[in-house]
Design a protein around this nucleic acid. Structure first.
Lengths: 128, 128
DNA sequence: CGGGATCCACCGAGATACTG
DNA sequence: CAGTATCTCGGTGGATCCCG
């Protein structure tokens, strides 16, 4: 699993996946990518849209995504200044597998929640 | 995006996704799931297999996955004791979208790395 | 408006030691 | 073998203030 060939090559392929998941798996990245899936957005517009993200974290998230070539940052020097963020082709392509994962989440969340409650019940029963 | 209907309903659907990504996005979960994709494994076997994971984190990761119903934990009371971990049907179903993401990672990693290097160069150029 | 800089709290995660 | 318990440190992320 996670290997191109049948041989066992953990550190090579798996590190790449870990790397991508470090990018996608953080608290805000996919939410931002999801928002930008529809259209390009400005900073504060994005900030209000994502809801819960702090200014600092949005900035850091956007920087990271820009660094990885997933979004573009377009500055329009005017007063007031205007900065637009937009998905690149690469970012848009990432949207596909992320949507798959989102679908899995929606589909199986009830099951997970039930399992979670059952597990917690067992644990408290053992402790008592 | 991330909504079932066209209306804008961020906090409902998006929170679910965030939840799943919190589960999948942490450092070890998918690696463990990936390893268990082939076959069930014992604790230390898994520990050696994942490579880099500490005993503590493997324990915590396995507990989390078990709690969410993604893996089962089977204890065989013997000397020495034996505990086997195995993917559930739910866990196996999660493997599908995760593989998609893994494929994206493998496919686009070179592009990301180039973008990353370019970005870093620009930054250092600006600073200097 | 779109950030940068700073301070601080929290907890994720490694190291170590002990147990059934 | 398969954990639990504790201590500790570094990083992540929030809050706040300031700037072009």
């Amino acid at each position: 699993m996670f290997d191109t060939d049948t041989a066992h090559r953990p550190t090579n392929e798996c590190l790449k996946i870990t790397e991508v998941l470090a990018r996608v798996g953080d608290k805000w990245s996919i939410l931002v990518i999801g928002r930008l899936g529809d259209r390009s957005m400005r900073f504060n517009e994005l900030r209000r849209s994502v809801e819960g993200v702090s200014q600092r974290m949005l900035t850091l998230t956007l920087r990271g995504l820009e660094r990885d070539g997933l979004i573009t940052r377009t500055v329009t020097s005017s007063i007031p200044p205007r900065v637009d963020y937009e998905l690149t082709g690469l970012g848009r392509s990432l949207l596909v597998p992320v949507e798959q994962l989102a679908r899995w989440a929606q589909e199986h969340r009830p099951t997970v929640e039930i399992a979670r409650r059952e597990f917690d019940l067992k644990m408290t029963a053992d402790t008592v």
